[in-house]
Design a protein around this nucleic acid. Sequence first.
DNA 1: TTATAATCGAGACGGTACGTCACGTCTTAGT
DNA 2: ACTAAGACGTGACGTACCGTCTCGATTATAA
Lengths: 198, 198, 198, 198
Amino acid sequence: MADSMRRTLGVQKGARSSQVVKAVLSATTAELSRGGYAGLTIEAVAKAAGVNRTTVYRRWPTRAALLAAVLEPLLARYDVVPDTGSSCHDLSVLLQTVRDNAELPEGQAFTEASRSTSAELQDLMSAALHRALAPFHAVLTRAVERAEIEPEQRDLIAQLAFFGAVMWTQTHPKPLTDAECDDMAQLLLPAAADAGTR
Amino acid sequence: MADSMRRTLGVQKGARSSQVVKAVLSATTAELSRGGYAGLTIEAVAKAAGVNRTTVYRRWPTRAALLAAVLEPLLARYDVVPDTGSSCHDLSVLLQTVRDNAELPEGQAFTEASRSTSAELQDLMSAALHRALAPFHAVLTRAVERAEIEPEQRDLIAQLAFFGAVMWTQTHPKPLTDAECDDMAQLLLPAAADAGTR
Amino acid sequence: MADSMRRTLGVQKGARSSQVVKAVLSATTAELSRGGYAGLTIEAVAKAAGVNRTTVYRRWPTRAALLAAVLEPLLARYDVVPDTGSSCHDLSVLLQTVRDNAELPEGQAFTEASRSTSAELQDLMSAALHRALAPFHAVLTRAVERAEIEPEQRDLIAQLAFFGAVMWTQTHPKPLTDAECDDMAQLLLPAAADAGTR
Amino acid sequence: MADSMRRTLGVQKGARSSQVVKAVLSATTAELSRGGYAGLTIEAVAKAAGVNRTTVYRRWPTRAALLAAVLEPLLARYDVVPDTGSSCHDLSVLLQTVRDNAELPEGQAFTEASRSTSAELQDLMSAALHRALAPFHAVLTRAVERAEIEPEQRDLIAQLAFFGAVMWTQTHPKPLTDAECDDMAQLLLPAAADAGTR
DNA sequence: TTATAATCGAGACGGTACGTCACGTCTTAGT
DNA sequence: ACTAAGACGTGACGTACCGTCTCGATTATAA
């Protein structure tokens, strides 16, 4: 039953396997950078990685799996919550992380794919979204505790901050600067901004 | 020369043509509602419209053209700038418009497609984005004139408001309520909110 | 009933109609010269003639009809039977006629189309073949009367002579010369050749 | 590089592949028998063979390739030169081979296609023609050596004999009989016929 | 050290959709 | 009354990837 598929399960210790993995994943980001997720084909990835098409299929059965694999490092950055003492600054730091991710092809592909209706992607993407939003909620929960914002504003601010940064390049030719991240944070956390300034 | 491509140019007077157009466009929204833009195939649209595939190609040479056609009514709603006297309320009205659009399959497809790297879409989508953002800028320019916000905050607020509303359903199971639109507007325009309150 | 088709039946007196006919027919030979009968499309003919596609269809409902129209002048040359006194020379003259026709694009298309299995062509082509073979039979019948060949050889010789000339360009880069026509005639009618020589 | 086109190159060991090949080729001759080469569509061949259309394309990229494949056995018959001692009889044997081939749908398609102007066919067909004419030239070269014909008559006789037989069914309802083959050979090789008779 | 299991490359296949071309028919105008 | 122009359904084209399967051929891990 498991044999019928002959699917690759884990990464072998040997150098060969890990090289294949590395080659495929970097080929994937390369392919994502031109064409985005919509233009991502297993065929092209395999060719770019110098690997047989079936080999890719064995380890990553779907396009979504490939995306997930390549997305992991970006999401890992959201696993640490900044804590500088100032909510406003914490938020700004998070926005900078978002910006850094959004500049990478994988990051672009993420926002592109997050709108997809495909079932396989839906789960992956909503999980990733929650992971990315988590530090925002953490920082803003602290802001609530410091009485800088009302509790019921928390989610709204997280929403505005996160997507404001994610979608920045949609409307602006250049990526967010650090100063603009600060502006955005101050706009959304006026009380915290005052505290930091004075 | 016009003959050389044998492409359908305008809608004929006859009932036949206009019926075809209607059938195809509504089939397009139907197909968009399941599968989104990524899952939109001319084949399926044609079948759902009870029309031959080539007929679709003649009038809408690309998938993007089909999307543009079906998107037009939504974008038209952004052509009127609300003017209720209160900037905060104007903004809220715009957010409600965004929400209404985002609930429709065409609207979802719009945000999905706007992230695409495809050349044909790029132009169409950036034009649509500008059209959708225009009323936001108009309303906020009035807010600047009323000294409710700083001039340099204008674009930033437009950005946060627009994408905050557009991406709402990414993080929330239910669409924006009118009250939430008000909250969002007040958060972004605190001075104008005060004015309206007093 | 007849109106439902709205088919053009005869050539109108006016200059316009006859001009259309001329333009289409010469466009047809032009198209035949590149692509042959297999590559002949109504679309291309209409465009080359500067005429609408439907106009062509009305007057020549099928590709075969177009071919027939353009073939007529070539077949007309077979309606006169040479009579120089020498069977051998008569045959040579016929072979030269075949060669002249075979050099024209219509002639090439004729031999190409004559092998077709299409029903509409079958009739047209077999009729044309008979018309082309008729003078051969006439000349050879005279040869039989002159006791230059056996009666039962008549059809065989006609067959060899006609197709030998028609298919000449299949195996030779240059068309038949007059001398080669003579050689061929003498080979097939040795008795008549002797008579002419002495 | 071999992967880049994903084209089927050779016949695999497995029974599957060879069965596909067999099915497609016999379907091709079946389709040729109705419609001829002009009416041959990959679509119909695939359907008749119970095979997917793309599978056909992979192994035989063009219609011409399909024809060539199906033609090969017929052409192979021309690779052996008859040598019965009598030039006249040798020629008759060749004519019978031509007749046998011309009765098969592939043979009909061959003569049909040989008149085509298509580039892809041109090469294939001229090569096939040379292959078919080769034994004629061989037999007639022997006849020259036996002083039965003049050297400069050789090609002319080959031309007349070959095409006379090939085109036989154009003008006759029934295929060539063996006796008629003999007649034709004797007509073209009178000296050799005498030798055989005495 | 040699089995044994995991992984890979290669070739082939059925299948879906693409975008294009030409077909032949029909309707609606425009002279 | 003809022709023009526009539109449509239809069939076939050749291509691109898809996802699956079956073979060997390698390559590691373990008896």
